[in-house]
Every structure is written in C-alpha cells, then in structure tokens.
C-alpha cells in the first residue's frame, strides 16, 4: 500500500537531489567533527612524543597520567567544584522555576530576563566582573569564589530545563493532591518533584558538564589551591604537545560517550 502510494506520489526529484546533497554535506561535517578526535585518541597509544610518526603501541602515557599529581589534584578540585555548583544550581533553579510557574510575580518578565543574563553574557565579562566583586567584597579567592561563580552561570540552565517541563505539566495534579488533604509542601514534594525529575536530572547534568569544562570564568576566580582541571590542561597545552594530554582526551571522550548514552537511556525511561 505504502509502496503504491510512493509510486503514485513519488517525492519530487529536486527534493531528493537536495536531500542527497544535504546528506553528503552532513557526512563531511561529521568527518570534520570526529577526525581530529580520532587522531587525538590514536596518538595517545603512540610511543613517540611528537605526535607525527607512528612508532609503537604503548599504554605508557596512561600510566604517567595516573601518577601525575597536578592533574589528579586539579581533577579532584574540578569534581568538588562541579558537584557543589550542581547541587546549588539544582536547588536554586528548581525552586525558582516552580515558584515562577506557580505564582504571578510583579515584574516576572524582568526577573525572567535577568535569569537569562548569566546564560548569554560573554564569559570574559562575567569573569572580570566577578573578580572585581570578590576583590571589593574582600572575599579571598578559593573554592568558595569558584563555586559561587559556577553556580551563577549554571542555575539558569537548570531553571530553563525545569520551566520547559512545567509548561507541559497538568495543573490538576497538584490541585488533586491538595484536595486530598496534602499540605502545599507535601504536594510539591510528592507530586511535583517526581514529575520534574527528568528535567531536573538533565539540567543537573548540563550544569555539571558546564562547570567541569569552564575555563574563562575560572581563570579569573581561582586561587592556587582551587585550580581546576581545564586551567591545568590549558597550561600544559600552552607548553606544547604532550602525549599525556592525548591520553587524558581519550579518557574524556570515552567518559563523554558513556555519559551521553546514559542520559539517553534515562530519557527513554522517562518517556516510557
């Protein structure tokens, strides 16, 4: 039947041609995106330090990476900072989204605009302005300063993700819970929160990755003790090619793939 329909109304050849061209173009784009990553990972197993000629296979750089104190320490710092910023961002973002949904505030439009500012403001301006703020407030740079900075640009992403989910939420749900005698807080906790879970999780993941990958704002707000992994990588990349960085990249990419597959899995679960 569908075969017949296709024969009776064939897709116009012009469009098919266009489609074919677009497909080829997309393939090129993927080649561009993945070629360098493949090269990077390939050379992480090369004995040569210079990343040009293939000499022999080795795991040496992975071993050195595992023993490299500055990388491990800055990785630890980054994890602590990203975890703290994510928790704060989830708390502020989720409650903020719910409140803005639940109540009509005077100046809601202005508040909404203000929330978008840290998402789209140039990072360098945010970095400089926060550095100056911390200096004016004589807050010494350290973990607190980076976490505050990261939370500021992370929570709007959580808020927007949760807001999108709230818009599709049936308001009758909460009313039903209230009618059944639940306190507003219990209704929020037992009805709203579970509904928002997928959005909260994807917002949290977004916040966590953003924080882990942030370079520019961290550049202005870290102290030696709270130096983050991207800053360490930047420093190493500036000094030159280093197979340890290739190894680190390979680990990053593999982690990312696992992570993306995991979130997709979560999404599918949520959709079911």
């Amino acid at each position: 039947m569908s075969d017949l329909a296709a024969k009776r109304f064939p897709r116009p050849t012009g469009l098919r041609l266009l489609d074919w061209g677009l497909g080829a173009w997309t393939a090129l784009v993927f080649l561009f995106l993945y070629g360098p990553i493949a090269v990077l990972i390939g050379y992480s197993f090369n004995t040569s330090k210079l990343n040009v000629v293939w000499e022999a296979f080795t795991f040496r750089w992975y071993g050195e990476l595992m023993r490299n104190e500055p990388i491990l320490r800055t990785l630890g710092n980054s994890l602590v900072i990203a975890a703290a910023a994510t928790v704060l961002a989830v708390v502020i973002g989720t409650t903020g989204a719910w409140l803005l949904h639940r109540f009509r505030y005077r100046g809601a439009r202005a508040i909404q605009t203000l929330i978008c500012v840290p998402m789209i403001m140039p990072e360098i301006v945010m970095g400089v302005s926060l550095l100056i703020l911390f200096r004016v407030a004589s807050l010494e740079l350290g973990f607190a300063s980076v976490i505050l900075a990261h939370t500021t640009f992370c929570f709007p992403f959580v808020l927007v993700a949760v807001q999108a989910r709230l818009q599709g939420l049936d308001p009758a749900l909460e009313e039903a819970a209230l009618d059944l005698g639940a306190t507003p807080l219990r209704a929020f906790w037992l009805v709203i929160v579970p509904c928002l879970r997928p959005a909260v999780i994807s917002g949290a993941l977004m916040a966590f990755t953003l924080s882990m990958d942030e370079l520019i704002i961290s550049f202005f707000t870290v102290s030696p003790a709270s130096r983050t992994l991207p800053l360490q990588v930047f420093g190493m990349a500036k000094v030159g090619l280093n197979p340890m960085l290739n190894a680190l990249s390979a680990i990053f990419v593999v982690t990312t793939v696992a992570f993306v597959l995991f979130t997709e899995h979560l999404k599918r679960l949520a959709a079911r």
């Binding site: 630890g76 703290a84 928790v87 973990f143």
Partner: peptide
C-alpha cells in the same frame, strides 16, 4: 546526590 553534596561541602571545608 546527597552524599555528593556532603562530600563537596566537606571537601571545601577541609581544603581550607
């Protein structure tokens, strides 16, 4: 996430 948050807070405290 809770233990993670605690670990983070603890990490911050001990870092000082």
């Amino acid at each position: 996430l809770l233990p993670l948050a605690l670990a983070a807070a603890f990490g911050v405290a001990t870092a000082g």
